[in-house]
Design a protein around this nucleic acid. Structure first.
Lengths: 339, 339
DNA sequence: TATTTTTCCGAAAACGTTTCCGAAAACGTT
DNA sequence: AACGTTTTCGGAAACGTTTTCGGAAAAATA
């Protein structure tokens, strides 16, 4: 199990360590024959370089850290696939840490990864994160960080976003055009920009059609199935039934559907439903869920590319970029009032 | 951004590096007052130890590698959550690599992680993996490795398994007791032990009820939605419609359901369906899918515990353990012929 | 032949730790 | 006072690389 080191190879060939290193790294200053010799014996002895030693010397780790709030909904795993596709090709590895939607864990994770000398971070904030001073400090110090989807206005760094406003607008408009008069919005937690944007889209769509929105139509909800289920159950108990729901994401929409079906309401006849952040499930459930599709894979790839770009330019001037990706509204039967 | 090192602290206090190190590590050989002093100034200067340097010296990285075939179905992410819950508490981090169900990638990933000095590996094999000599060599050399679910008989190391045979038997028996006479099995790829075990359960359940199984009743299928969809579509085209299907996992069952519904067949009236490896979706789709639930989180936790145990005992005698976890058959309407 | 240039290689430093070894000082015992 | 023991600290090696520097030998030039 003992690892063969460059030293072992050198000793075997009666060469200096530096010579072996040069041979392996294909540097100048080396005679062709010795290089061949070294390469061959290294191969035979099963030598493989020790990345840790190299990291120590180069002061970087060829690893990038990914900090995400959770791993349960399909969204983040899909983004990670995208990240990995880009990053792995370039010889980087990713360290993934979950924050479990908890701001303390998040801070802890970021610090751990930083002290582990990751070359950069890709982060999506917890729904509870309010204090971003540490992240801000890192960014101000020039540490490469890319944030996707869940961000905070204070963080001036490269960001990959989705046009939440636009697609929330379209989704709401779709419900209005279906003839819905009393649409409720299950919104995400308030301190995420995306929640505010989606709400604004909801509001502005109503404004376009001169429809008033009462405060009671907007319900702060979480992002999990049980959150949507809980809020819908509350509405049902208080006999306060809308004719449509625009949920901030698919799991909460699905939760609402579960509660409605359990209580004998028909979808979409009694209540039409539209979700957000298309998940694989949307197409499979009963009835199939109309939802805004986010390009999860592309989000990951873009974030990864931005990060690598930033890591590589090193001492140059860094200009934070914000890339807004496009989506689609997949209309299915959960929102089609008239067939 | 420059990291504060132990050297900086030493210089500031006019102490030797070794003294500072001792203070920080709370070793003997140090006077109380100097220790306090060092600790305080280190804190003030924002010192944090450099893990990379420590890894180089200690010849281990406090990281464990996780190699999984894919990330798309919910199963593996859920297992990873379990792994992380255990591992993170003990100060370890995980490096996750996907093999994309490709044996070459898998080997590459394992080598990368190994040369990266991970302290151990948690692996679930690709469905294509046939040659396990490299893994075997690692295991024989005493490198800590735990395998879960997808294994290979040649690998003598700690393993976390699910009793595939037993639950496939129960699942099939359930269909037989529903009165199904012509049950097809969408089995997983042949070189995975779990596929063979599930098939055997299927066969033995038939044997118990003195029912014959024709070779045509067993169809080799993949693990993804589109695999099940494709195979079912083939059956429909050739008018070869069973009265029930026992699929090797949920996604392939769901694929079969999609194809059946598209072609106007009723579930469970025309074809009853049972899946395997309960996913969140099972409860949400139409009709809700009867499925064998695997304790994904527990699988991950157990694997992690076994690995940490093996890592820690170091030079002691290592006895590979195989832990078989229990599951449950969640019966839902997709398999209930008579209501 | 003498001088310069080029080619090739070894020595050593560096990255940031930990730890072994030994030295100095403090202390206690005869 | 002489000696042994303990406490406290500094020096240096080690982990495995890469890279700079310098020097010897070979080759090219004068």
């Amino acid at each position: 199990m003992k690892h063969v080191t460059i030293k072992d190879v050198a000793k075997k060939l009666n060469l200096a360590i530096s010579t072996v290193s040069r041979a392996l790294n294909d540097k100048y200053d080396i005679r062709k024959e010795t290089r061949e010799l070294v390469l061959q014996t290294a191969q035979e002895m099963g030598y493989s370089p020790n990345p840790i030693a190299r990291h120590l010397l180069k002061q970087c780790s060829n690893q990038i850290g990914v900090v995400i709030p959770e791993f349960i909904n399909a969204f983040f795993p899909e983004v990670i696939i995208g990240i990995q596709e880009v990053v792995q090709k370039e010889g980087y590895q990713i360290l993934i840490m979950q924050s479990y939607e908890n701001a303390e864990n998040e801070l802890e994770n970021i610090k751990t990864l930083e002290s582990n000398m990751v070359d950069g971070l890709i982060v999506s904030l917890t729904k509870e994160t309010k204090d971003v001073t540490y992240l801000k400090k890192l960014i101000d110090n020039g540490f490469p960080i890319v944030i996707f989807n869940r961000t905070n206005e204070l963080l001036k760094t490269s960001t990959v976003l989705f046009d939440d406003y636009k697609w929330a607008f379209f989704a709401t408009e779709h419900l209005i055009l279906q003839g819905c008069k009393n649409i409720y919005h299950f919104m995400g937690t308030k301190n995420l920009t995306l929640s505010l944007n989606r709400k604004q889209g909801f509001l502005d769509a109503h404004k376009k059609y001169k429809m008033e929105v009462l405060p009671s139509q907007i319900i702060e909800c979480g992002f999990m199935i049980h959150d949507g289920e809980r809020e819908m159950e509350k509405l049902i108990q208080s006999k306060d039934i809308p004719d449509a729901i625009f949920a901030a994401n698919d799991p909460s929409a699905i939760g609402a559907m579960k509660a409605l079906k359990r209580n004998g309401y028909k979808i979409p006849e009694d209540v039409a439903i539209v979700g957000f952040t298309e998940s694989k499930v949307a197409d499979l459930i009963d009835p199939p869920l109309t939802s805004v599709a986010q390009p999860t894979n592309e989000i990951g790839q873009t974030a990864a590319r931005l990060l690598l770009q930033q890591i590589r330019l090193k001492e140059g001037v860094f200009v934070p970029q914000t890339i807004v990706l496009n989506g689609a509204l997949n209309i299915r039967s959960s929102s089609l009032k008239k067939i």
